[in-house]
């Protein structure tokens, strides 16, 4: 951050190179050259920051899309990522790659009459998912609304009361709705984000180019960007990760809630549910007619956010 306060530091180009650059600018009328030079220097700058070895940098640069990697390539990539994560965070990190479970489509239901706005889910999520603490990325927003209103524009995102719930208010947690027709996936120009077989929209952090078009496309404000190089105190790192969810991210890529893929694909419950002190959250497989979530969806008065946008969210709200 000291660099940030001292912009002059980065301007330190020697005089003679200034001159040569000016010459260069004069001589290069073809913009393509400029663009190419920019791309190359970017690559070098970015890779220098992130890793020690040149081969690692090259491997990272040429790393294939998640869905195109063979088993061996995947193992190599994961080994490299784990090694680099250890270098960076000083902690052994395991990057899993559990595939989606057969016959499972994840769904989430939230009882808004039970939510008291404690924000326990928000912090449990951050602890579980290794978000950047500098830019304070949070996947869950809890809105405080007037009891009789659903107008988000009048919601308070930053309520900070002695105690909640406050009389006359209701609380409305919003996170990724895991749409069946996710607008973010169609928006992405490089297919860096897609919907997995279990209905979870994921991101390949090593493929994302950081254009943030998905963030513009998402009607639920679920996509968060790594504006700076993520930094997490060593003791706060969750070493149990998944390639597609909570593994350490890098600067300049998108991230989002994955219903704690790293947990739920192993049968565990999402961190936000475990943290909820009021039992407002119900999670499960919506293909299983005997599941709790199906009972909620079939027997309760449920609704979804912005259903009129034809996104078909797999996140339902209900009340007693």
């Amino acid at each position: 951050m000291s660099e940030k306060n001292n912009p002059a530091k980065t301007v330190e180009t020697p005089e003679n190179s200034d001159v040569s650059r000016r010459e260069l600018f004069k001589k290069t009328a073809i913009a393509g050259t400029i663009a190419a030079a920019g791309a190359v220097s970017t690559t070098i700058a970015a890779s220098n920051v992130e890793s020690g070895g040149l081969s690692d940098a090259l491997d990272e640069f040429f790393q294939k899309h998640y869905q195109e990697m063979s088993k061996e390539e995947m193992q190599k990539a994961i080994a490299r990522l784990e090694r680099k994560a250890k270098e960076k965070h000083g902690k052994e990190i395991h990057i899993g790659n559990t595939p989606p479970l057969e016959g499972v489509l994840f769904g989430y239901a939230l009882n808004i009459s039970k939510c008291k706005g404690y924000r326990k889910c928000v912090d449990a999520c951050v602890a579980e998912n290794n978000q950047n603490r500098d830019t304070t990325i949070q996947y869950i927003r809890v809105l405080e609304l007037e009891n009789e209103s659903m107008n988000f524009e009048e919601a308070d995102h930053y309520y900070d009361r002695e105690t909640v719930p406050h009389t006359g208010k209701k609380y409305f947690p919003i996170q990724c709705q895991q749409c069946e027709n996710p607008p973010c996936v169609t928006a992405c120009p490089v297919e860096a984000t897609w919907k997995e077989a279990d209905g979870i929209t994921v991101i390949d952090y090593n493929w994302c180019i950081g254009c943030r078009y998905c963030a513009a496309a998402c009607p639920y404000w679920a996509r968060k960007f790594n504006w700076s190089e993520p930094s997490i105190p060593e003791e706060k790192i969750n070493p149990e990760t998944h390639y597609l969810s909570n593994r350490p991210r890098m600067r300049g890529v998108m991230e989002k809630c994955t219903f704690c893929l790293q947990r739920t694909r192993k049968g565990k419950l999402p961190a936000c549910l475990e943290a909820c002190p009021t039992g407002a959250r119900v999670f499960g497989n919506i293909l299983d007619p005997k599941s709790e979530i199906r009972y909620v969806l079939e027997n309760k008065k449920v609704f979804r956010l912005k259903e009129e946008l034809n996104t078909e969210p797999k996140f339902w709200y209900y009340s007693d």
């Binding site: 008291k116 924000r119 304070t136 927003r141 900070d160 105690t163 504006w227 700076s228 002190p277």
Partner: peptide, 16 residues
């Protein structure tokens, strides 16, 4: 009835 409790802190603005 569940007792009212103090909420976790509100989302801070991002760095910078």
């Amino acid at each position: 009835a569940l007792e009212p409790a103090s909420p976790n802190p509100p989302p801070p603005p991002r760095q910078g």
